[in-house]
Design a binder for these strands. Sequence first.
DNA 1: ACAGCAAATTTGAACGATCAAATCATCGCG
DNA 2: CGCGATGATTTGATCGTTCAAATTTGCTGT
Lengths: 337, 337
Amino acid sequence: MGNERPTITTVAERANVSRQTVSNVLNAPHRVQADTRQRVQAAIVELGYRPSRAARQLRTHRSNLLAMRMTPFSEELAGSVLDRFVHAVTESAQGYGFRTIVFTANTDDDEIAAYSDLLDSYELDAFVLTGTHHRDRRTTWLRKQGVPFVTFGRPWGVRARHWWVDVDGKAGTTAATERLLDAGHRRIGFVGWPIGSGVGDDRRAGWETTLRAAGVDPSDLLTSTENTVDNGHASAVELVHQRRADALVCASDTLALGALAMVRDQVSRGGPAVPVIGFDDSPSAAAMGLTTVAQPLREAAVTCVDLLTSFLDRSGDDASVEHHVLLDPHLVVRQSG
Amino acid sequence: MGNERPTITTVAERANVSRQTVSNVLNAPHRVQADTRQRVQAAIVELGYRPSRAARQLRTHRSNLLAMRMTPFSEELAGSVLDRFVHAVTESAQGYGFRTIVFTANTDDDEIAAYSDLLDSYELDAFVLTGTHHRDRRTTWLRKQGVPFVTFGRPWGVRARHWWVDVDGKAGTTAATERLLDAGHRRIGFVGWPIGSGVGDDRRAGWETTLRAAGVDPSDLLTSTENTVDNGHASAVELVHQRRADALVCASDTLALGALAMVRDQVSRGGPAVPVIGFDDSPSAAAMGLTTVAQPLREAAVTCVDLLTSFLDRSGDDASVEHHVLLDPHLVVRQSG
DNA sequence: ACAGCAAATTTGAACGATCAAATCATCGCG
DNA sequence: CGCGATGATTTGATCGTTCAAATTTGCTGT
């Protein structure tokens, strides 16, 4: 049997047309007459023809490939947010005929080196970045190279400008805080990250302004620690016991799980039930019945891919116009608050 | 400035040799004399030359690409095991000059369709499969096509034969059960999955044989449910309250977290502390202080990539020899047991 | 000094697609 | 009736690499 992989020429012969006509059916169908188009399409189906990306890429310098960094192997709980995001991006990219290459890198500079290799060797079409931060070197590098990219996370530096999609963390903590206020709590503590990270500051701001607006002074109701479960526990002890907080909003589920453990422990000893609200809706949050702020990751991913493809289509055109999308998170209410 | 991307010809001119010599320096260094080799290498560095994968692929039909399916978007806790595995594979594949393409699929047939597309269009070199099960159609399909692949998970069907790496689940639950026996427990319950899944049966077997060896009849100490936190909770209630189990081994962390919640609840009401041991060492397990059986995912990933590359190198040779690797998990002891 | 041979290097063709330009067909209209 | 315009299709060149065969270089032994 004809076990050779069919090429565009095979198809052309089968349909009694030239290579180029087959190519046109695939890439510019309007240029070819209806009846020949059908004949060609039939031949394609019969032979099970699929164009060789390598050959196409060699000629056009487009790979239909997009790349993302995966979250570091051993990262905490946090991992799952970005993993879910990677998955969602992959899924929606497939809808546009793009495949996703993943890679690992430990520092921004490693990541830039990876970009460089991927661009030169594989001619990637675009990148999706996550975890933007102050003085992000990746975005400036990519801009300088003129490579299309979108970030999940807004540019926290003043001067950085590029296309991005982000989730409104401030709105999330605002909703969380308001819910607790509505339930009658006043001394609402915030278990936060060290000052200076864009994301952390944003989330803290939601809590702070809401509390102020309600006439509560937030100044002694705040802790700032690295993102670990144990730190969450310790912070909760401090806020509840020493500062007499009667409810807690946390910058992450990781911290919240620590806080939740402390609170449940206290309840089991007959203490008061202090509600806890986390951030990210990680699988652990669901498992532990933690109320939390959920990011619309799927929507974020779809939007990223939309932006990228529209950017690639009108390449160069007026690609200098920036596009931003800020999505609203929503509260997932469970037992903890 | 010479802003054109350098090609092999550019390098050749710079080093005063022919294209082919440059190619040989890259692909068969032994064929070229030491001094010219160095001259060429210098030119490569100076120009920052990187070979075009597309062109190479067009000629050789090798892409240096390997593909894996990502875990479905919305899957429970379980997700993180495979996410970590994907990450580890990506990382070690990079060491061999392979990049990883990820894709999504909801059923085995979808996955096969994806293979087919990736093979035809992108000429992938190999696949890594996860989650093997009885009557796995993917492995038979790939075998029939003669595509190199390795599975993480052994072939559970009798007739399936291929290269695989797996973790000895039975050894894991054996270790867990022995630990509990050593601590003086006798009526050790097993919170398991429905009969019939290879992985689940394997893990149950470890508990069962160990218990039998210790002279305990396991027959009324078993539950079998789908993998959810709530089911874990319900199973724990049944085993502890009705069957008077004094310790629990679970088929997964998801189930174990439910069981753990039940147990801690009971302790807070003054009940006895029933130890719980999970399986997978998910981030949630760490967060909740759950003792659990950890799979050596990194090692598994490295082994998979090793097998694949050695397979690809001696392509065809005596590739019919099978290779299996069974890795031992280890217990991570935390508060829960 | 030169045939004989191995090692080192070069040359032409090919991989499978698209681009740009050329050809062929059809048609309207003065 | 012929000429230009427009649309459909085909032809030759090319992308950057490797393969296979041809060529050049260097050396050995008699």
